[in-house]
Every structure is written in structure tokens, then in C-alpha cells.
Write a protein that binds this DNA or RNA. Sequence first.
RNA 1: GGUGGGAUGGCCGAGAGGCGAGGCUCAGGACUGCACAUCCUGCUACACGGGUUCAAAUCCCGUUCCCACCUCCA
Length: 459
Amino acid sequence: MILHLYNTLTRDISPFKPITPGKVGIYLCGATVQAPPHIGHIRSGINFDILRRWLITSGYEVTFIRNVTDIDDKILHNAIHEEMPWWALAQKYERVFTAAYAELNLLPPTYEPRATGHITQMIELISLLVERGKAYPVANGDVYLDVRALDSYLTLSGQKLDDLQSSADGEESIKKNPQDFALWKSAKPGEPSWPTPWGDGRPGWHIECSAMAQAYLGEKFDIHAGGLDLIFPHHENEIAQSNGAGYPFAQRWLHNAWVTTSGEKMSKSLGNTLRIYELLKRVRGIELRWYLGSAHYRSMLEYSPEALDESAVNFRRVESFLKRAANQLGKIPSSHIAEEFAHAMNDDLAVPAALAVISELVKEGNSALAAKDSKNLEVKSAQVRGALAVLGCDPWDDTWAKSDAALEEVVSGLVKSLLEEREVARARKDFESADRIRDRITELGLTLEDTPDGPRWSR
RNA sequence: GGUGGGAUGGCCGAGAGGCGAGGCUCAGGACUGCACAUCCUGCUACACGGGUUCAAAUCCCGUUCCCACCUCCA
């Protein structure tokens, strides 16, 4: 089975065929850097990081663009609130996002363009739209896209132009149609601006993605991804801008669903944001990533602390299997992709089904471990590790492994001497002393188990 | 009003006409000095009412409830 993916445009699952064989271009709408990330932002990043890793594992050469929108209304607003220049605020939060992405082992994008670095491309695109009669400047210096001049509009969200609730924005008088949206906004006092043929101003919300996608992926590319809420208006308007300029634009659209709490979407206005760094106090990064990646990307993920804890327990079972396998094999297992796992991933990235495959492999692997069947153990552990790598949760990945290797060695030595003492006690059937030593070790947060090969400890 | 997505066992969470996904919890068993870990067994669910079918969680009709989008949004 070859990779099948959903397409919001056609609302069905179909075989994925890249424009250029062996190569894939993906544009993911990244952050508007106006505030720290919450787990919803990161879930989106993780979902499409898994897509990217799976494509790479499948042999594709992937160009992955994730933009940074570093100029927009909210950034200007928050900059006043936080009493700093808008560009300082944008950079501050861009760094927080970058750190969070790195902490959760997202591969860095091939290129990560900023909106403010592509004003030239935006102006070129807007000029072309005006030339082609798809956009019009107005007296105050704004430039609007004329949605009724397009060959088609709202193909992605499946709505009808006349059914849209038109916003009461008071500016309607200067627009041809209430649904026309701003490509360019004229300069206001105290706000940043760039010179254009229509006067000084700054970009509208959607134009940056049309301009940057084209700059890095060309006029036609394979996949455009982002959150569900971007379907309308953001992606709809990107299509409008790029098609209006005569470019085919994205061939396939993928949208990830929400992280919700108590059945509701995480949103700033509701004030129930869950910040990454709060959750990292509760579980390790690799466990948070496992959790956020565990639901199907098009399904809502209902957040609760209990669900997060349960998921972490589930991950530790897999992880501890791999660690014990490495111990018995005397080396870290290599990575290999199991056929059933590939089948699940090829079915529109069916991660939940893939997790079921991992569970089975772990079960079989554990049995091989008990039976000292090294050959089988090697196969199963390689397949488990290969699966985890695709999910970005390989325990030996540098992101997670770097932490405290040096300290680990010291602790290991100390625990070892304690265990030797305990073995002496056990040998003379002094279980009271043996249990006392075990309790001490357990109290320190380590897990201890006696195996036929002697005691083993782990964190 | 328009558009889209949901409701699955104690809990989480897949599936989309027949063959009990998987995990967590709990109970029992094997192993163990005990415990942990591991393995085995058990806990037969699909919002409600009709219909189609040899067969429905899955298809059709209707109903209830929930959520999202309709120019701030991952």
C-alpha cells in the first residue's frame, strides 16, 4: 500500500502522488509570534513533523517550510501592552516557539521564512493581482482583493459567498464587496510601514503565506498544512490570492484538529491555554510528545492531566522494553520499520493503529526477552525503535539523550554498590535488610526489579 | 441562517456492513523470598427511535445532545 492522505479540498482520502517523483514540498502555517505557545500550537507542529518523518522514512526528499508571521495586528497590540517595540516582541516569542519546538524534538524546517523578510515578494504579488483586475487599491492606500472577480472562491471550506455572515467592520463603504479582504493596509501613525506603489503600509494577514510558499516551493506545490481554523479565512484567502495571480498553488490540504479541554477548543479568549512549560513540569518532553502525537491528526485530542499521565505510563512501558532489550543485546537496537506499522502510517497517518502495532511488538519483544530469544528480540526491538523514531520519540535521539549522561554514570556506580550489599543480604536470606535497601532506592525515585540475571534499576 | 466534525466499555481511544484495535484501571493466574517488571486469563461497548440486510457500532430516515468555522485563531 502506498501512502494515502486526506485532502480537505476534496474531503476524501486518496493516494499521494508528488508533483516531482521522489520529492515533496510542504508548507505549514507556523506561528504568529504574539504570545508563548500552548499545546495546540505544538500539536500541529508534531502532527506534521510525523508526516515529514514518515515521508523521509518512505524515501522522499522533503522540503519543509514553516513560516513565522512576525507582523500582524495582535503583535502590534501586544507590543504596546508589553511596552516594547513590535519587532522585539515578535523576536521574543519566536525564540520561545523555537525552544519549545526543539524541546519536543521537531525537526527544524528546511527553511523558516519570516513575513517581514518577504515584503518585496508580497508587493510583487499584490501588483500582479491589481494588474490582473483581481485586486484594487482604494483612496486611503489600502489594497483589497476583489472576491467577486475570482474564477472561484471558497472551494476549500465549501461555503457560498452569499451565505457568509458579513462582518460589521464599518469599512464596508470603501470596499466593493463586504467579503473583500485586505492585501495591504495603509500606514497608521506609530505603526511600522513599508513603501509601496499605493503608499506606505503593512501587509494584510494572508498575503505573507502566498508570497513565501511561492518563493520557496514554487507556483505549484504538493502539500499545504495547518490548523483546522485556518481553513477559513486564512487558507481560503491564500488560494484566492495565488489562484488570482494565476498560480495553481497547493495540490493537497491537510488540517489538524484541536486540543480541547472540557470539550472546548483551547483559545486565548477562553483563557484556558495550556502552556508547554507548565506541562513539562509534569512529564518529560518525550512523554508530552508521545501524548500530543498519539491521537489521529484529524481527531480532537481531549486534554486532561489524567489522560496525559496515562499516556506517559504507556510510553514508559515501551521505553523500558527498549532499554531492557538494549541491556540484554549488549547494544542499542538499530531501527527497522515493521510492515504493519507502515501499513497503518500509509493509511492517512493512522497513528492510533500504529500504536496498537507497537503494543503488540512490545508484548512479543518482552516474551522474547524472557525466553532469551536474542534473534527475535533483535527484530522486535529494532521495529519498536524504528516506529518510535517516526513518531519522534526515539529514546536515543540526541534531543532526549543529551541531558545527564555524566551524572547517570555516577548514580549508576552508587546504586550498584547498594545493590551488591542487598544481594549479600538476600543470599543469607536476610530479607528485612534487603527490603530496607530496596525501599531506600525506591524512595529516591528509582525503580528496582530482580531478574534471573540479577537486580536491575531504572529511572 | 450557512458549512463541517462528533457521541464507542470503569476511563482513554481506534474502526466504518460479518472476523472482540490498542492502552489505562480493576480482578484472577504464572514467575518471584516478597515486591516491581513481564506474560496469560477475565471485564463482550458503540447517544436514542425506526428501517434496509442472512448479518448494522458501521448503510438509510428521524430525534436528542455536544463542538468548531462563517474575516483574531494551530
